[in-house]
Write a protein that binds this DNA or RNA. Structure first.
Lengths: 190, 190
DNA sequence: ATCAATATGATACGCGTGTCTCAAAAATTT
DNA sequence: AAATTTTTGAGACACGCGTATCATATTGAT
Protein backbone atom coordinates (compact mmCIF):
# COMPACT_ATOMS: atom_id res chain seq x y z
CA UNK A 1 0.00 0.00 0.00
CA UNK A 2 2.89 2.33 0.74
CA UNK A 3 4.31 0.92 -2.46
CA UNK A 4 1.12 1.78 -4.27
CA UNK A 5 1.25 5.33 -2.97
CA UNK A 6 4.90 5.68 -3.90
CA UNK A 7 4.26 4.35 -7.36
CA UNK A 8 1.34 6.69 -7.89
CA UNK A 9 3.28 9.68 -6.68
CA UNK A 10 6.25 8.88 -8.85
CA UNK A 11 3.85 8.76 -11.76
CA UNK A 12 3.27 12.42 -11.06
CA UNK A 13 -0.08 12.47 -9.35
CA UNK A 14 -0.75 13.39 -5.75
CA UNK A 15 -3.38 10.89 -4.80
CA UNK A 16 -5.84 11.27 -1.98
CA UNK A 17 -6.10 8.57 0.64
CA UNK A 18 -9.26 7.34 -1.06
CA UNK A 19 -7.50 7.04 -4.39
CA UNK A 20 -4.65 5.09 -2.88
CA UNK A 21 -7.20 2.82 -1.27
CA UNK A 22 -8.87 2.09 -4.56
CA UNK A 23 -5.58 1.63 -6.38
CA UNK A 24 -4.31 -0.73 -3.69
CA UNK A 25 -7.55 -2.71 -3.64
CA UNK A 26 -8.47 -2.03 -0.05
CA UNK A 27 -11.39 -0.21 1.44
CA UNK A 28 -11.36 3.46 2.19
CA UNK A 29 -11.70 2.79 5.90
CA UNK A 30 -8.62 0.60 5.96
CA UNK A 31 -6.61 3.16 4.07
CA UNK A 32 -7.55 5.81 6.60
CA UNK A 33 -6.44 3.48 9.36
CA UNK A 34 -2.91 3.32 8.03
CA UNK A 35 -2.72 6.91 6.84
CA UNK A 36 -5.07 8.98 8.99
CA UNK A 37 -4.65 11.95 6.70
CA UNK A 38 -3.14 12.94 3.42
CA UNK A 39 -0.32 14.47 5.44
CA UNK A 40 0.58 11.10 6.89
CA UNK A 41 0.51 9.57 3.44
CA UNK A 42 2.80 12.16 1.94
CA UNK A 43 5.02 12.01 4.98
CA UNK A 44 5.52 8.30 4.51
CA UNK A 45 6.34 8.61 0.83
CA UNK A 46 8.72 11.47 1.54
CA UNK A 47 10.61 9.28 3.97
CA UNK A 48 10.77 6.66 1.26
CA UNK A 49 12.08 9.17 -1.22
CA UNK A 50 14.59 10.64 1.20
CA UNK A 51 16.15 7.29 1.98
CA UNK A 52 19.14 7.35 -0.34
CA UNK A 53 19.66 11.06 0.20
CA UNK A 54 19.94 10.82 3.95
CA UNK A 55 22.57 8.13 3.81
CA UNK A 56 24.77 10.22 1.57
CA UNK A 57 28.32 10.46 2.78
CA UNK A 58 31.07 12.43 1.21
CA UNK A 59 34.12 10.77 -0.25
CA UNK A 60 36.16 13.84 -0.99
CA UNK A 61 38.01 16.09 1.42
CA UNK A 62 37.36 19.21 -0.62
CA UNK A 63 34.25 21.13 0.36
CA UNK A 64 33.51 22.25 -3.16
CA UNK A 65 33.66 18.70 -4.45
CA UNK A 66 31.57 17.49 -1.56
CA UNK A 67 28.86 20.02 -2.26
CA UNK A 68 28.93 19.20 -5.96
CA UNK A 69 28.69 15.53 -5.13
CA UNK A 70 25.79 16.12 -2.77
CA UNK A 71 23.90 18.09 -5.38
CA UNK A 72 24.65 15.55 -8.07
CA UNK A 73 23.27 12.70 -6.06
CA UNK A 74 20.35 14.50 -4.46
CA UNK A 75 18.77 16.73 -7.06
CA UNK A 76 17.93 13.94 -9.51
CA UNK A 77 16.34 12.02 -6.69
CA UNK A 78 14.30 15.04 -5.68
CA UNK A 79 13.25 15.46 -9.26
CA UNK A 80 12.33 11.81 -9.49
CA UNK A 81 9.94 12.36 -6.60
CA UNK A 82 9.00 15.84 -7.65
CA UNK A 83 5.28 15.37 -7.06
CA UNK A 84 5.96 13.97 -3.61
CA UNK A 85 8.15 16.81 -2.51
CA UNK A 86 5.81 19.37 -3.93
CA UNK A 87 2.95 17.76 -2.05
CA UNK A 88 5.04 17.91 1.11
CA UNK A 89 5.80 21.56 0.53
CA UNK A 90 2.12 22.22 -0.01
CA UNK A 91 1.31 20.53 3.26
CA UNK A 92 3.94 22.49 5.12
CA UNK A 93 2.40 25.67 3.75
CA UNK A 94 -1.01 24.54 4.95
CA UNK A 95 0.42 23.82 8.36
CA UNK A 96 2.06 27.19 8.45
CA UNK A 97 -1.23 28.85 7.59
CA UNK A 98 -2.99 26.86 10.26
CA UNK A 99 -0.36 27.80 12.79
CA UNK A 100 -0.89 31.45 11.94
CA UNK A 101 -4.65 31.15 12.30
CA UNK A 102 -4.85 29.29 15.56
CA UNK A 103 -2.36 30.96 17.85
CA UNK A 104 -1.53 27.60 19.38
CA UNK A 105 1.65 27.23 17.40
CA UNK A 106 2.89 24.14 19.13
CA UNK A 107 2.38 21.53 16.45
CA UNK A 108 5.44 19.74 15.18
CA UNK A 109 7.01 21.22 12.08
CA UNK A 110 6.45 19.23 8.94
CA UNK A 111 9.50 20.44 7.07
CA UNK A 112 12.35 18.93 8.95
CA UNK A 113 15.70 20.40 8.20
CA UNK A 114 17.47 17.58 6.49
CA UNK A 115 19.09 20.15 4.30
CA UNK A 116 20.76 21.64 7.31
CA UNK A 117 22.51 18.47 8.37
CA UNK A 118 23.53 17.45 4.88
CA UNK A 119 25.01 20.81 4.02
CA UNK A 120 26.79 21.14 7.33
CA UNK A 121 28.26 17.75 6.71
CA UNK A 122 29.34 18.69 3.21
CA UNK A 123 30.95 21.86 4.51
CA UNK A 124 32.74 20.16 7.36
CA UNK A 125 36.17 20.50 5.70
CA UNK A 126 35.81 24.27 5.87
CA UNK A 127 35.56 24.33 9.62
CA UNK A 128 39.16 25.30 9.99
CA UNK A 129 39.23 27.85 7.25
CA UNK A 130 35.93 29.61 7.97
CA UNK A 131 34.36 30.76 11.18
CA UNK A 132 31.24 29.04 12.42
CA UNK A 133 29.16 32.02 11.38
CA UNK A 134 30.65 31.98 7.91
CA UNK A 135 30.00 28.28 7.49
CA UNK A 136 26.44 28.74 8.65
CA UNK A 137 25.83 31.58 6.26
CA UNK A 138 27.25 29.57 3.41
CA UNK A 139 25.12 26.59 4.34
CA UNK A 140 22.08 28.81 4.49
CA UNK A 141 22.82 30.28 1.09
CA UNK A 142 23.42 26.83 -0.36
CA UNK A 143 20.17 25.56 1.04
CA UNK A 144 18.41 28.07 -1.18
CA UNK A 145 19.71 26.21 -4.21
CA UNK A 146 19.07 22.75 -2.87
CA UNK A 147 15.53 21.52 -2.62
CA UNK A 148 12.18 21.39 -4.29
CA UNK A 149 12.08 25.16 -4.32
CA UNK A 150 14.96 25.11 -6.75
CA UNK A 151 12.98 22.87 -9.05
CA UNK A 152 9.93 25.07 -8.80
CA UNK A 153 11.79 28.23 -9.65
CA UNK A 154 13.97 26.89 -12.43
CA UNK A 155 11.64 24.41 -14.04
CA UNK A 156 8.23 25.94 -13.52
CA UNK A 157 9.02 29.62 -13.69
CA UNK A 158 12.01 29.66 -16.02
CA UNK A 159 10.94 26.62 -17.97
CA UNK A 160 14.32 24.91 -17.81
CA UNK A 161 14.68 21.20 -18.40
CA UNK A 162 16.14 18.82 -15.86
CA UNK A 163 19.67 19.11 -17.16
CA UNK A 164 19.77 22.89 -17.19
CA UNK A 165 18.18 23.01 -13.77
CA UNK A 166 20.89 20.79 -12.40
CA UNK A 167 23.56 22.83 -14.12
CA UNK A 168 22.34 26.15 -12.76
CA UNK A 169 22.01 24.78 -9.24
CA UNK A 170 25.51 23.33 -9.44
CA UNK A 171 26.97 26.54 -10.76
CA UNK A 172 25.28 28.61 -8.07
CA UNK A 173 26.43 26.23 -5.37
CA UNK A 174 30.05 26.18 -6.47
CA UNK A 175 30.04 29.94 -6.94
CA UNK A 176 28.79 30.41 -3.39
CA UNK A 177 31.40 28.07 -1.95
CA UNK A 178 34.17 29.79 -3.87
CA UNK A 179 32.93 33.21 -2.81
CA UNK A 180 32.82 32.23 0.85
CA UNK A 181 36.31 30.76 0.75
CA UNK A 182 37.82 33.70 -1.09
CA UNK A 183 36.14 36.11 1.25
CA UNK A 184 37.56 34.34 4.26
CA UNK A 185 41.04 34.25 2.76
CA UNK A 186 41.11 37.90 1.84
CA UNK A 187 39.82 38.96 5.23
CA UNK A 188 42.45 36.82 6.90
CA UNK A 189 45.10 38.18 4.63
CA UNK A 190 44.11 41.85 4.87
CA UNK B 1 -13.81 43.85 0.28
CA UNK B 2 -10.47 43.49 -1.45
CA UNK B 3 -9.24 45.72 1.35
CA UNK B 4 -10.72 43.37 3.90
CA UNK B 5 -9.01 40.42 2.26
CA UNK B 6 -5.71 42.27 2.10
CA UNK B 7 -5.97 43.28 5.71
CA UNK B 8 -6.77 39.75 6.82
CA UNK B 9 -3.92 38.30 4.83
CA UNK B 10 -1.45 40.81 6.15
CA UNK B 11 -2.57 39.81 9.61
CA UNK B 12 -1.16 36.43 8.73
CA UNK B 13 -4.23 34.35 8.05
CA UNK B 14 -5.23 32.88 4.71
CA UNK B 15 -8.95 33.39 4.77
CA UNK B 16 -11.44 31.45 2.72
CA UNK B 17 -13.90 33.30 0.56
CA UNK B 18 -16.56 32.68 3.19
CA UNK B 19 -14.43 34.19 5.92
CA UNK B 20 -13.75 37.27 3.87
CA UNK B 21 -17.47 37.56 3.26
CA UNK B 22 -18.23 37.47 6.94
CA UNK B 23 -15.43 39.87 7.81
CA UNK B 24 -16.53 42.29 5.12
CA UNK B 25 -20.14 42.07 6.21
CA UNK B 26 -21.53 40.68 2.98
CA UNK B 27 -23.17 37.40 2.21
CA UNK B 28 -21.28 34.34 1.11
CA UNK B 29 -23.01 34.41 -2.26
CA UNK B 30 -21.89 37.94 -2.97
CA UNK B 31 -18.34 37.17 -2.01
CA UNK B 32 -18.26 34.26 -4.44
CA UNK B 33 -19.53 36.58 -7.14
CA UNK B 34 -16.51 38.82 -6.81
CA UNK B 35 -14.00 36.07 -6.12
CA UNK B 36 -15.25 32.85 -7.72
CA UNK B 37 -12.61 30.84 -5.93
CA UNK B 38 -9.92 31.14 -3.35
CA UNK B 39 -7.46 31.31 -6.20
CA UNK B 40 -9.07 34.48 -7.50
CA UNK B 41 -8.99 35.98 -4.04
CA UNK B 42 -5.32 35.26 -3.49
CA UNK B 43 -4.55 36.38 -7.01
CA UNK B 44 -6.11 39.75 -6.35
CA UNK B 45 -4.25 40.27 -3.09
CA UNK B 46 -0.99 39.19 -4.71
CA UNK B 47 -1.45 41.84 -7.35
CA UNK B 48 -2.03 44.32 -4.57
CA UNK B 49 1.12 43.19 -2.81
CA UNK B 50 3.22 43.18 -5.95
CA UNK B 51 2.34 46.76 -6.85
CA UNK B 52 5.37 48.56 -5.44
CA UNK B 53 7.69 45.75 -6.44
CA UNK B 54 6.75 45.78 -10.08
CA UNK B 55 7.35 49.48 -10.45
CA UNK B 56 10.86 49.15 -9.10
CA UNK B 57 13.43 50.86 -11.24
CA UNK B 58 17.14 50.89 -10.66
CA UNK B 59 18.99 54.10 -9.99
CA UNK B 60 22.51 52.76 -10.12
CA UNK B 61 24.54 51.74 -13.13
CA UNK B 62 26.36 48.97 -11.27
CA UNK B 63 24.72 45.57 -11.52
CA UNK B 64 25.76 44.56 -8.01
CA UNK B 65 24.22 47.66 -6.53
CA UNK B 66 21.11 47.26 -8.60
CA UNK B 67 20.60 43.71 -7.41
CA UNK B 68 21.22 44.75 -3.82
CA UNK B 69 18.75 47.56 -4.24
CA UNK B 70 16.17 45.26 -5.73
CA UNK B 71 16.51 42.80 -2.87
CA UNK B 72 16.43 45.55 -0.30
CA UNK B 73 13.20 46.96 -1.60
CA UNK B 74 11.48 43.71 -2.48
CA UNK B 75 12.21 41.21 0.25
CA UNK B 76 10.68 43.25 3.07
CA UNK B 77 7.57 43.70 0.99
CA UNK B 78 7.40 39.99 0.32
CA UNK B 79 7.80 39.36 4.00
CA UNK B 80 5.10 41.88 4.80
CA UNK B 81 2.74 39.83 2.65
CA UNK B 82 4.26 36.52 3.61
CA UNK B 83 0.92 34.80 4.12
CA UNK B 84 -0.30 36.03 0.76
CA UNK B 85 2.69 34.82 -1.17
CA UNK B 86 2.70 31.52 0.62
CA UNK B 87 -0.95 31.09 -0.25
CA UNK B 88 -0.11 31.86 -3.86
CA UNK B 89 2.68 29.31 -3.83
CA UNK B 90 0.33 26.76 -2.36
CA UNK B 91 -2.17 27.43 -5.10
CA UNK B 92 0.47 27.10 -7.78
CA UNK B 93 1.42 23.74 -6.32
CA UNK B 94 -2.20 22.67 -6.43
CA UNK B 95 -2.45 23.76 -10.02
CA UNK B 96 0.71 21.88 -10.87
CA UNK B 97 -0.69 18.76 -9.26
CA UNK B 98 -3.92 19.20 -11.15
CA UNK B 99 -2.06 19.65 -14.39
CA UNK B 100 -0.19 16.41 -13.73
CA UNK B 101 -3.40 14.53 -12.98
CA UNK B 102 -5.55 15.66 -15.85
CA UNK B 103 -3.38 15.48 -18.92
CA UNK B 104 -5.06 18.57 -20.31
CA UNK B 105 -2.24 20.86 -19.29
CA UNK B 106 -3.53 23.96 -20.99
CA UNK B 107 -4.56 26.07 -18.05
CA UNK B 108 -2.77 29.35 -17.54
CA UNK B 109 0.16 29.27 -15.15
CA UNK B 110 -0.49 30.90 -11.82
CA UNK B 111 3.09 31.73 -11.01
CA UNK B 112 3.95 34.44 -13.43
CA UNK B 113 7.60 35.14 -13.82
CA UNK B 114 7.90 38.62 -12.43
CA UNK B 115 11.21 37.57 -11.00
CA UNK B 116 12.52 37.02 -14.47
CA UNK B 117 11.81 40.52 -15.68
CA UNK B 118 13.01 42.23 -12.54
CA UNK B 119 16.29 40.37 -12.41
CA UNK B 120 16.95 40.79 -16.11
CA UNK B 121 16.37 44.46 -15.63
CA UNK B 122 18.71 44.59 -12.66
CA UNK B 123 21.38 42.77 -14.61
CA UNK B 124 21.05 44.93 -17.71
CA UNK B 125 24.38 46.69 -17.09
CA UNK B 126 26.16 43.37 -17.48
CA UNK B 127 24.94 42.84 -21.01
CA UNK B 128 28.20 44.04 -22.45
CA UNK B 129 30.45 42.20 -20.07
CA UNK B 130 28.67 38.86 -20.01
CA UNK B 131 27.19 36.74 -22.74
CA UNK B 132 23.45 36.32 -22.90
CA UNK B 133 23.77 32.81 -21.58
CA UNK B 134 25.87 33.96 -18.67
CA UNK B 135 23.42 36.68 -17.78
CA UNK B 136 20.57 34.21 -17.94
CA UNK B 137 22.34 31.75 -15.73
CA UNK B 138 23.13 34.45 -13.22
CA UNK B 139 19.53 35.63 -13.26
CA UNK B 140 18.35 32.08 -12.76
CA UNK B 141 20.69 31.59 -9.84
CA UNK B 142 19.65 34.90 -8.32
CA UNK B 143 16.01 34.01 -8.64
CA UNK B 144 16.64 31.15 -6.25
CA UNK B 145 17.46 33.66 -3.55
CA UNK B 146 14.65 36.05 -4.36
CA UNK B 147 11.12 35.07 -3.51
CA UNK B 148 8.91 33.44 -0.94
CA UNK B 149 10.95 30.28 -1.25
CA UNK B 150 13.85 32.15 0.29
CA UNK B 151 11.69 33.09 3.23
CA UNK B 152 10.46 29.55 3.65
CA UNK B 153 13.93 28.05 3.67
CA UNK B 154 15.65 30.61 5.84
CA UNK B 155 12.88 31.51 8.26
CA UNK B 156 10.93 28.29 8.59
CA UNK B 157 13.66 25.71 8.19
CA UNK B 158 16.66 27.56 9.59
CA UNK B 159 14.67 29.63 12.02
CA UNK B 160 16.31 32.91 11.07
CA UNK B 161 14.66 36.22 11.84
CA UNK B 162 13.78 38.79 9.22
CA UNK B 163 17.07 40.64 9.46
CA UNK B 164 19.27 37.60 9.13
CA UNK B 165 17.15 36.29 6.29
CA UNK B 166 17.62 39.51 4.42
CA UNK B 167 21.34 39.48 5.16
CA UNK B 168 21.86 35.94 3.90
CA UNK B 169 19.87 36.58 0.75
CA UNK B 170 21.83 39.74 0.09
CA UNK B 171 25.14 38.02 0.67
CA UNK B 172 24.24 35.15 -1.61
CA UNK B 173 23.05 37.51 -4.31
CA UNK B 174 26.16 39.66 -4.25
CA UNK B 175 28.38 36.60 -4.14
CA UNK B 176 26.68 35.20 -7.22
CA UNK B 177 27.00 38.45 -9.12
CA UNK B 178 30.68 38.74 -8.20
CA UNK B 179 31.32 35.16 -9.17
CA UNK B 180 29.68 35.59 -12.55
CA UNK B 181 31.60 38.75 -13.31
CA UNK B 182 34.94 37.32 -12.23
CA UNK B 183 34.31 34.20 -14.20
CA UNK B 184 33.61 36.18 -17.33
CA UNK B 185 36.70 38.33 -16.85
CA UNK B 186 39.05 35.45 -16.29
CA UNK B 187 37.68 33.54 -19.27
CA UNK B 188 38.07 36.61 -21.44
CA UNK B 189 41.56 37.14 -20.14
CA UNK B 190 42.70 33.54 -20.47
C1' DA C 1 -43.98 57.55 -8.71
C1' DT C 2 -43.30 53.58 -11.77
C1' DC C 3 -40.90 50.37 -13.96
C1' DA C 4 -36.78 47.94 -15.59
C1' DA C 5 -32.09 46.43 -14.62
C1' DT C 6 -28.84 45.06 -11.59
C1' DA C 7 -26.88 43.70 -7.12
C1' DT C 8 -27.64 41.12 -2.98
C1' DG C 9 -29.08 37.46 0.30
C1' DA C 10 -30.96 33.07 1.82
C1' DT C 11 -31.16 28.42 0.84
C1' DA C 12 -30.31 24.04 -1.09
C1' DC C 13 -27.28 20.96 -3.62
C1' DG C 14 -23.14 18.12 -5.12
C1' DC C 15 -18.57 16.75 -4.00
C1' DG C 16 -14.50 15.33 -1.42
C1' DT C 17 -12.12 14.76 3.07
C1' DG C 18 -12.00 12.82 7.42
C1' DT C 19 -14.58 10.47 11.46
C1' DC C 20 -17.47 7.11 13.42
C1' DT C 21 -20.11 2.75 14.18
C1' DC C 22 -20.97 -1.89 13.61
C1' DA C 23 -20.98 -6.24 11.37
C1' DA C 24 -18.19 -9.65 8.70
C1' DA C 25 -13.81 -11.84 7.90
C1' DA C 26 -9.20 -13.35 9.11
C1' DA C 27 -5.74 -14.56 12.20
C1' DT C 28 -4.37 -16.18 16.75
C1' DT C 29 -4.90 -18.72 20.96
C1' DT C 30 -6.35 -22.56 23.71
C1' DA D 1 -12.34 -27.43 16.30
C1' DA D 2 -13.90 -23.55 19.33
C1' DA D 3 -13.27 -19.29 21.19
C1' DT D 4 -11.04 -14.91 21.25
C1' DT D 5 -8.63 -11.20 19.38
C1' DT D 6 -7.50 -8.40 15.55
C1' DT D 7 -8.18 -6.67 11.05
C1' DT D 8 -11.12 -5.30 7.39
C1' DG D 9 -15.26 -3.45 4.91
C1' DA D 10 -19.64 -1.02 4.24
C1' DG D 11 -22.24 2.60 5.26
C1' DA D 12 -23.64 6.87 7.60
C1' DC D 13 -22.27 11.31 9.30
C1' DA D 14 -20.30 16.17 9.84
C1' DC D 15 -17.87 19.79 7.65
C1' DG D 16 -16.08 23.02 4.20
C1' DC D 17 -15.73 24.57 -0.65
C1' DG D 18 -17.89 25.85 -4.74
C1' DT D 19 -22.38 26.09 -7.60
C1' DA D 20 -27.11 27.06 -8.73
C1' DT D 21 -31.68 28.91 -7.89
C1' DC D 22 -34.89 32.18 -6.70
C1' DA D 23 -36.78 35.86 -4.10
C1' DT D 24 -35.77 40.51 -2.39
C1' DA D 25 -33.44 45.00 -2.19
C1' DT D 26 -31.29 48.66 -4.44
C1' DT D 27 -30.27 51.45 -8.06
C1' DG D 28 -31.22 54.19 -12.17
C1' DA D 29 -34.22 55.78 -15.99
C1' DT D 30 -38.55 57.53 -17.70
Amino acid sequence: MLETATRLMQAGVTPSVSEVAEAAGVSRATAYRYFPSEAALVHAVVDEALGPILTWRSTSADAGERVADLFESSLPRIEEFEATFKAALKLSLEEWAGRQAGTLGNEPQFTRGHRVDLLRQALAPLKGELSKGQVDRLAQALSLTFGVETLIVLKDIWGLDAGRTQAVAQWAASALVRAAVEEARSSKKG
